[in-house]
Design a protein around this nucleic acid. Structure first.
Length: 716
RNA sequence: GCGCGCUUAGCUCAGUUGGUUAGAGCGUCUCGCUUACACCGAGAAGGCCGGGAGUUCGAAUCUCUCAGCGCGCACCA
């Protein structure tokens, strides 16, 4: 066979990648269903399953996704070549709040607001918007070379997924692990929804801090606008300074809008060292205060409404937004002589909405909560027993720490975009009933009328059920075959998602959802800074693949990138691997040219002493690489193969070969030609998981009839 | 405050259980168009492995401590 003309020009990823991906996809081998592998690759009885973390259906592929696709595809291709019945299941997340925020921005541009649009219509609009955009990210995943089984693709809003999510909700209810309760939650006044802890960002702020006279006491606050209803004054029971005041004692106090009666409460939550050791409480708008009120059975009163405006209790300030009201209230306190002093440089942490930065306003609301303690306990038991291997290991500690400190999980969101909560609410007695069959018409507690709950689930409630939901729990064929899955690969900063999957999967299926957790780090810009739109340093992975080829991008993502460590993404690095792809190309060209007319002979035995030594070294290298692959040390495997191909095979062996060929010793030449052919063949196989396109392209041009993708890994 | 990381060549990072002169890529410098490849080749410079103490025959690697950076959790009104 003569050398294809293509080899005369440098490797051109643009020419190859689309065509090669199509070849793979149309072959059907991304799925293990209806095909048996040809060649020698016999499927092992063992299955191997990895689930793609569901990306935001509405989003674009970002650098982090680039890393996900690279690592997971390396794992998948490797396992496939090792003969496992391999499933990499792709999926998309409706990403509730995230997506709704994006759509709200679209609405804003059109001069509309979500609050003016009927719920059904809004849901439909966002659904259309999401589905329209989801084609985008799917084509981007393909560009990364992902060899996932598209025939099994899932979306968190698919009816079969929703059905399973509902079953779990019902099970939690039946087991007493779910309740609807009036509790303090974190509320974003702008987005008009409650949040879980992870959706809150802490921000350090310097704000004035006010010391205010409260009867015989001086209290302090950074938020005077919440203080209107404060009628309990709390101090530590052991505080000698206030020993004369007894628990339950009533004291008349001249307050913002006139005289009130304050009640003394003694509680150990008070820090005697802080401020004056006395505080008044606002249970409706502060988590600590809420707890104190719970403990002592105290009244709670709402001061601020859901829009951040003061309620009638604020008297003359009613209807005013808290931002505007604060200085005016301070003025009034001052005028009444109640303001003792102001500390202008008070540094404290303020909770803000992770999306819009609006200060979170705690509110007491009726929401759905999952009791996490029992779920966490089971997960901790398994994790501590080492039944889940964390790579790197320290994520285990982080996870354990998180699980040990879990509070009940607020799973209801007051947004339209999401899975509707299948429940009925009785507004009269504020009770909720889980009602999948839509049968409940009357409150069985008070007999009042019930209405449908209009809230939706926290998006993590559904994605937390991903492993068993996507595989078709409880009796789907895939569930039986692939559950528990093998490895869960994702970004370290969403370890809580992993923990949720462990908890919910254990709870629902009784088994761990996976045995290995592989966490990768954050992808940073070339300078090691976090990428952000506002900094303008966001790197689009697709620009890089466009410029240097997908293989180069993938190699750049994986070489030297240890799990869990952040990765500085620079063009220089990617460029280096573009050169490598071309190097491979030329290695292939040389080998094919110089062995024209010679066939690769599996049974060839007449190797020279020198070549035998080279074979041995090659075998050792491949053994080493295989060990690295099995231990998830892709960063080492890739580097070793790179080094071998370039600096060993190309720089030394090929260079020596030129000499051997020119010297004319027929047996030496025959030996070396076999060695070159075998080595090229093995290098292509071993590098295929890392650089699938260029290796497949060379494989195809070398006259192979089958796909490299389903060839065997180079050594057993 | 508690917890988790990180600190190795100019830059980005490897260094798997402690073991010979500490590695790679990029960058820099000097040569070289030797027909696989200039998206290349040959070669070179460059590191008391953050500071200090300890364990050991031996430490970048283990322990302690200090410093700097990053992240997470909890916070006090």
């Amino acid at each position: 066979m003569s050398i294809p003309e293509k080899f005369l020009k440098p490797y051109d990823p643009k020419n190859a990648e689309g065509r090669i991906y199509k070849l793979w996809e149309e072959s059907g081998f991304f799925s293990t269903d209806s095909h048996s592998h040809p060649n020698d690759l016999k499927l092992k009885a063992e299955s191997f399953c990895i689930l793609m973390p569901p990306a935001n259906a509405n989003g674009n592929l970002h650098a982090g996704h680039g890393l996900v696709m690279t690592v997971e595809d390396i794992i998948t291709r490797y396992k496939r070549m090792r003969g496992f019945k391999t499933l990499w299941l792709p999926g998309l997340d409706h990403a509730g709040f995230e997506t709704q925020v994006v759509y709200e921005k679209v609405l804003e541009k059109e001069g509309r607001s979500r609050f003016e649009i009927p719920r059904d219509q809004l849901y439909k609009e966002i659904l259309d918007f999401t589905l329209k955009n989801s084609a985008n990210i799917k084509s981007q995943v393909r560009k990364m070379g992902a060899s996932c089984d598209w025939s099994r693709e899932k979306f968190t809003l698919d009816p079969d997924i929703v059905k399973i999510v509902y079953q779990t909700f019902k099970k939690l209810w039946g087991d007493g692990l779910l309740y609807r309760g009036k509790r303090i939650i974190s509320w974003c006044p702008k987005h008009q929804t409650s949040f879980a802890d992870i959706e809150i960002k802490d921000e350090e702020r310097i704000e004035p801090y006010y010391y205010i006279k409260y009867g015989p006491f001086t209290i302090s606050t950074s938020r005077p606008e919440t203080k209107f209803g404060d009628k309990y004054v709390v101090m530590h029971p052991d505080d000698k300074r206030y020993a004369e005041y007894k628990d339950g004692q009533k004291i008349p106090v001249e307050w913002i809008n006139g005289e009130i009666t304050a009640t003394v409460v003694k509680d150990k939550a008070i820090d005697m060292e802080f401020g004056t050791g006395v505080m008044t409480i606002t249970p409706w708008h502060d988590a600590t205060d809420f707890e104190i009120a719970e403990r002592h059975g105290l009244d709670r009163e709402q001061i601020i409404d859901e829009q951040g405006k003061l309620l009638p209790i604020a008297g003359e300030f009613a209807g005013m937004h808290i931002k505007k009201a604060r200085p005016l209230i301070v003025e009034k306190l001052k005028a009444k002589g109640l303001l003792v002093k102001v500390d202008e440089n008070y540094k404290h942490i303020v909770h803000t909405c992770y999306k819009c930065g609006t200060t979170i306003e705690p509110q007491i609301q009726s929401q759905w909560f999952v009791k996490m303690k029992p779920l966490a306990a089971k997960a901790l038991e398994k994790i501590n027993a080492g039944e889940v291997v964390y790579i790197p290991e320290h994520y285990k500690k982080i996870t354990v720490h998180w699980l040990e400190n879990l509070i009940d999980w607020n799973i209801s969101r007051q947004i339209v975009w999401g899975i509707p909560i299948p429940a009925k609410i009785c507004d009269k007695c504020d009770t909720g009933f889980v009602d999948l069959e839509n049968k409940i018409t009357k409150c069985d507690k008070c007999g009042g009328a019930v209405r449908k709950d209009i809230d939706t689930f926290d998006t993590w409630f559904s994605s937390g059920q991903w492993p068993f939901a996507t595989l078709g729990f409880p009796d789907g064929k895939d569930f039986k075959e692939f559950y528990p899955t093998d490895v869960l690969e994702t970004a370290g900063d969403i370890f809580h998602w992993v923990a949720r999957m462990i908890m919910l999967s254990l709870y629902v299926t009784g088994k761990l959802p996976f045995t290995t957790v592989y966490m990768h780090g954050v992808v940073l810009d070339a300078k090691g800074q976090k990428m952000s739109k506002s900094k303008g340093n966001v790197i689009n992975p697709l620009d890089l693949t466009e410029k240097f080829g997908t293989d180069a991008f993938r190699m750049g993502m994986v070489v030297g990138n240890t799990p869990g460590t952040s990765l500085a993404l620079s063009e220089d690095k990617i460029r280096a691997y573009k050169n490598f792809a071309n190097k491979l190309w030329n290695i292939a060209r040389f080998v094919l040219e110089s062995t024209e007319g010679v066939r690769l002979d599996e049974k060839f035995e007449k190797y020279t002493e020198e070549d035998s030594a080279l074979r041995k070294a090659r075998h050792e290298l491949l053994t080493d690489v295989t060990n690295d692959m099995d231990s998830y040390r892709f960063y080492l495997a890739a580097e070793k193969l790179y080094h071998y191909a370039w600096h060993e095979f190309a720089d030394k062996i090929i260079e020596d070969s030129k000499k051997i060929f020119s010297e004319g010793d027929a047996s030496k030449i025959a030996s070396r030609k076999q060695f070159l052919l075998h080595t090229l063949n093995k290098i292509l196989r071993a590098l295929h998981p890392f650089a699938p396109f260029v290796t497949e392209e060379i494989w195809q041009l070398s006259g192979h009839k089958n796909l490299l993708m389903i060839e065997k890994w180079p050594i057993e």
